[in-house]
Simulated assay, not measured.
Amino acid sequence: MKARVTVTLKSGVLDPQGKAIEGALKALGIEGVASVRQGKVFDVEIPGTDRRTAEAALSEAAERLLANTVIEDYRVEFV
Rank of each mutant, 00 (worst) to 15 (best):
K2Y: 04
K2P: 12
A3N: 09
R4K: 15
V5Q: 10
T6G: 04
V7A: 09
V7H: 03
T8A: 09
T8S: 01
K10V: 07
K10T: 05
K10P: 03
S11I: 09
S11D: 12
S11A: 11
V13C: 06
D15P: 00
P16H: 05
P16F: 13
Q17L: 00
Q17I: 01
Q17Y: 07
G18Y: 01
G18C: 06
A20K: 05
A20S: 14
I21R: 01
I21W: 03
E22T: 05
E22R: 00
E22L: 08
E22I: 02
G23T: 05
G23R: 01
A24K: 06
L25F: 13
L25A: 12
K26C: 05
A27I: 12
L28I: 06
G29F: 06
G29I: 07
G29A: 10
I30N: 10
I30E: 12
E31T: 12
G32C: 11
V33Y: 06
A34F: 07
V36E: 02
R37I: 03
R37Q: 08
R37A: 02
G39V: 02
K40P: 02
K40E: 04
V41H: 11
F42M: 07
F42N: 05
D43Y: 13
V44E: 10
V44D: 12
V44L: 15
P47M: 13
P47D: 06
G48E: 08
G48K: 08
R51A: 15
R51C: 12
R52F: 03
T53D: 15
T53M: 07
A54H: 06
E55R: 15
A56C: 04
A56F: 03
A57E: 13
A57S: 09
L58A: 13
S59I: 02
S59L: 00
A61G: 06
A61Q: 04
A62M: 11
A62Y: 04
E63L: 10
E63C: 06
E63H: 13
E63K: 15
R64E: 15
R64W: 09
R64Y: 14
L65W: 13
L65D: 13
L65V: 09
L65M: 14
L66V: 03
L66I: 12
A67H: 06
A67V: 02
N68I: 10
T69F: 02
T69D: 00
T69E: 07
V70A: 14
I71Q: 02
I71V: 15
I71P: 07
D73M: 01
Y74I: 01
R75M: 08
V76A: 08
V76I: 15
E77S: 12
F78S: 13
F78N: 04
F78V: 14
F78Q: 11
